[in-house]
Design a binder for these strands. Structure first.
Lengths: 168, 168
DNA sequence: AATATATCCTAGTTGTTAGGTCGGATTAAC
DNA sequence: GTTAATCCGACCTAACAACTAGGATATATT
């Protein structure tokens, strides 16, 4: 339950990758897609969100030797900001959408569950807003030096079909 | 993002409804579906999850004047328990599934994002586990007869999140 | 006993969306 | 002027969410 889509997953991984190369030359999506084993054409769609957000999270350089770089220091970018750009406002329920006072459901002045979903929403927001991109990029990286053997063990989210939501 | 499905939404509303009638005669799904304006046939599927869970959250009585009642006092049922039964384990990401240490993705010894999603998962779990069904059922109805702490908190939350994306 | 009212059970259906792919146009370094 | 990259929009498809349908079984009331 409460799953984050691959937009969020891959987008965050792009940002972490860029954070680890902060200060370097622009990093191309080709490099990122190879190093993270993610489809290039799909990453292009995601990075568009990161580039067009206000304020932008990444800045692009076109042409050969082009690529992307972070618009700011990783320490000044919270994961809440990143995830909201990728996935939209945090809203476990339509009546508990972040930021706006949605009067969509006027039936529910008397709705007791709104309180619950607001709590969940705030908990998620608090968790995401309290972690910076710098912190994430600093998580130790063990044994991935040579790259290949470990990377081959990676299973893409789409490859995994869990029986899901029933029982565990 | 991070949306809860109607399974979770309607299921919670069933439980709150039953909590408000705790101690009464069994309450039929027909009554609940009319009072909550939800499709009966669909509720039947959801209540099955609540009945077959281990331990069961509701107990059924068949036949005329039958219906459902809570298996325990509302004060002893956390919303975390309810939501997990309806939606499965809390898992914003497949690598951050609650309860078990899924070694599906061995690549993720070196995965920096797992830390993030685990934090989100724990925040959600904490929020859900800290609210009981009794508390939810006690949220004042229309007209707000008295200023309980719960109501004031509820209003405050709504106010905080109008117009800004910053955290509380 | 007959009827009305319930839960119980298994399938089928339908619209939406997640998660991509594909083809090409534009830009800049060498 | 060739290569390597970003940019852009359209298309595709399997999976799933959110129901609907049709019945079988159980029990209280008449």
């Amino acid at each position: 339950m409460l799953r984050v889509s691959t937009k969020g997953e891959y987008g965050v991984r792009i940002m972490v990758d860029l954070a680890r190369h902060y200060g370097d030359r622009p990093r191309s999506l080709t490099d990122i897609s190879q190093s993270e084993l993610l489809p290039l054409a799909y990453l292009e769609q995601l990075v568009k969100l990161l580039r067009e957000s206000d304020p932008p999270l990444v800045i692009s350089t076109r042409g050969a030797h082009g690529g992307y770089k972070l618009s700011r220091n990783p320490a000044e970018i919270t994961m809440g900001e990143v995830v909201r750009v990728l996935e939209g406002p945090i809203a476990p329920m339509i009546c508990a959408t972040e930021g706006e006072m949605t009067q969509i459901c006027n039936f529910l002045d008397s709705c007791r569950t709104k309180y619950l979903w607001s709590k969940v929403r705030d908990a998620v927001a608090q968790a995401l807003d309290s972690i910076t991109l710098e912190e994430l990029a600093a998580v130790p990286d063990e044994g991935s030096r040579q790259g290949s053997p470990l990377l081959q063990q990676f299973i893409a989210l789409s490859d995994i079909h869990t029986g899901t939501a029933s029982q565990s």
